[in-house]
């Protein structure tokens, strides 16, 4: 195993890693571009869902209609937010369940003094 002795060694390793990462980014340029575009869209869509839920709990069709997203995609996101603890299931309305933001995971911002 390699031991890092001096600051100089550490700096050299850092530089080498930086160069290797740059090269890897070059090799994976197209994949990275596609993944970044996906991530940006997902971030926007997730933010829209969460913003809508700030006001009140809602069913999948209600959320989908409000943010203009297909219902299956909305459910896909909601299942994911639930898995990562960001939303919780609330009461039932007809054949649908409502979902609410998990306050424990999204603490409300302190009111401005």
């Amino acid at each position: 195993m390699k031991t890092i002795n001096t600051d100089k060694d550490r700096d050299r390793d850092k530089e080498a890693k930086k160069a290797a990462m740059k090269e890897l980014r070059g090799v994976r340029k197209n994949l990275i571009a596609a993944a970044s575009a996906t991530m940006k869209l997902q971030r926007k869509e997730l933010a829209a869902i969460k913003a809508f839920l700030k006001a009140e709990a809602a069913t999948i069709p209600q959320i989908a209609a409000a943010i203009d997203m297909p219902t299956d995609k909305t459910l896909w996101y909601m299942a994911t937010l639930k898995k990562y603890g960001q939303i919780i299931e609330a009461q039932k309305e007809g054949a649908f369940f409502k979902y609410a933001l998990n306050e424990a995971d999204n603490p409300p911002k302190k009111a401005e003094a």
Binding site: I60, T74, L75, K83, F96, F97
Partner: peptide
């Protein structure tokens, strides 16, 4: 499971 209950994948409706 994905929804922790049985729901319709198209819209989250409980199937009848």
């Amino acid at each position: 499971g994905p929804y922790n209950r049985v729901l319709r994948p198209s819209d989250g409706m409980e199937p009848d």
